[in-house]
Computed example of a mutant assay.
Amino acid sequence: MFRFGEPTYLYLLLLLPFLAAFYLYSNYKRRKNIRRFGDPTLLAQLMPDVSKYRPDVKFWIIFVAIGLFSVLLARPQFGSKLETVKRKGVEVIIALDISNSMLAQDVQPSRLEKAKRLISRLVDELDNDKVGMIVFAGDAFTQLPITSDYISAKMFLESINPSLISKQGTAIGEAINLAARSFTPQEGVGRAIIVITDGENHEGGAVEAAKAAAEKGIQVSVLGVGMPDGAPILVEGTNDYRRDREGNVIVTRLNEAMCQEIAKEGKGIYVRVDNSNSAQRAINQEVNKMAKSDVESKVYTEFNEQFQAIAWVILLLLLAEILILDRKNPLFKNIHLFSNKK
């Protein structure tokens, strides 16, 4: 497994575009000033020892060296020893509704984006726990099997969008059943399913699925995204809204009563996700209240530093920059490889 020991230093890479832009602008101003004094070709003949390309080569060498130095400071590492360890934690599977109605913007920036941000913060709060993700619309499928790899969880989260499932609908029952089957077989571990949905076009079976999960000791909580008053569904890439066959704008509304019933039968909580962070705090508290048991995880316990190769490359680049003179080398000024003179 590859990781950075100090990933914060990677933010230094954000300075590189500004450095490149400053250098290019400086070159532009320099050429502009030269043209003010006379013809650039004539001036080049008057200064035969001035190299046109060497300053650029030297700059880009330094540019690459700075980028590599940022990576070096971040301490790239490869895992060398995989071990099974036991930690106190719980298992959480998040079932996310990705039907088209989740594109409504009664919650900013949209129901789906708000839900994804909430999940990202929830993953950040997990400690020694396992997390999995299921997405659903008319069908449900596993987006991320249950894991303790939070980095992968957030990477998979970024790729979620309604195009992953073509069949429209809100198969909450199918998602809960799939989630209930997705936990590890380990005994004595606290388990929870967090359903994030607007509950519209509910296809039935969700309450029964939540009740069956609760009987197995799996808590089912629901986060309702949206507002009861509803909102139109924006067509992605346009300023228009989705319409029915008669041409009327479709308004999608949060089915709060159904969400509350699912949470009640699932022995969990229901929280409406609005434009505040109240839902985030409530679900974090609910997860923290769960009984934490020993959770087995395979983790890398030893990491080998990989900075040596990068350090050598940086050293070679700096030596090359020093050896390349700003002016043409006088030792080679009489050598004309491409000259037509005889």
Rank of each mutant, 00 (worst) to 15 (best):
N329E: 12
E236T: 14
G268Y: 03
I324M: 09
V123A: 14
K216P: 01
F183Y: 06
K130R: 14
R272C: 11
C259P: 02
D129G: 07
P185G: 11
P228W: 04
N201T: 12
V123D: 07
R35V: 08
G205C: 07
D49R: 10
E321T: 00
L103C: 08
S339F: 05
A279T: 04
F37N: 10
D240F: 00
S101P: 02
Q186T: 15
V287D: 04
I62A: 11
N239D: 15
V235K: 15
N284Y: 01
L223Q: 01
S101F: 02
S99I: 00
L118D: 05
E83P: 06
Q168I: 01
T8R: 13
D56Q: 12
N284A: 10
A44H: 02
F2D: 12
V131H: 04
T41C: 05
D244W: 01
F183H: 06
R327K: 14
I194M: 01
K216E: 15
F156Q: 09
T301A: 08
P17T: 03
F4H: 08
P109V: 00
A95W: 04
V107C: 08
A44V: 06
A291P: 06
G5R: 01
S120Q: 09
F141W: 13
V207K: 00
A282G: 08
N177Q: 14
L42R: 15
E261W: 01
L317G: 14
W312V: 14
G230A: 06
L323N: 11
D127K: 11
L72K: 06
I233M: 02
T301R: 02
N334G: 12
S99F: 02
L16I: 12
L14W: 10
A291G: 10
I176P: 03
N27S: 12
K58G: 09
R35M: 12
Q108N: 13
R111D: 09
V295N: 06
I165D: 09
G173R: 03
Y270E: 07
S101W: 05
H336Q: 15
I314Q: 07
T147K: 02
A320M: 14
F63W: 09
E113Y: 06
K264E: 13
K341P: 02
G205S: 10
K52S: 13
D326L: 08
D106S: 03
T184R: 10
I119N: 01
I61C: 13
K216V: 07
W312C: 11
S166Y: 06
I146A: 09
S26R: 10
R181S: 14
D149I: 03
L12D: 08
W312Y: 15
G79A: 03
P7C: 11
L103H: 07
E200H: 04
P48S: 07
Q105D: 13
G169C: 07
P162E: 09
D49Q: 10
P185L: 05
I93M: 03
G38N: 04
V225G: 07
K154G: 07
D274R: 01
E236D: 10
R117C: 12
E236Q: 14
F59R: 02
M155P: 03
S293R: 10
I269C: 08
L254M: 08
R54E: 11
A214S: 14
D294Y: 06
L73Y: 02
D149Y: 03
V90C: 09
D244V: 06
Q77S: 10
A65S: 15
I66S: 08
E215L: 15
L157M: 10
I310R: 05
S276G: 12
Q219M: 14
V222P: 05
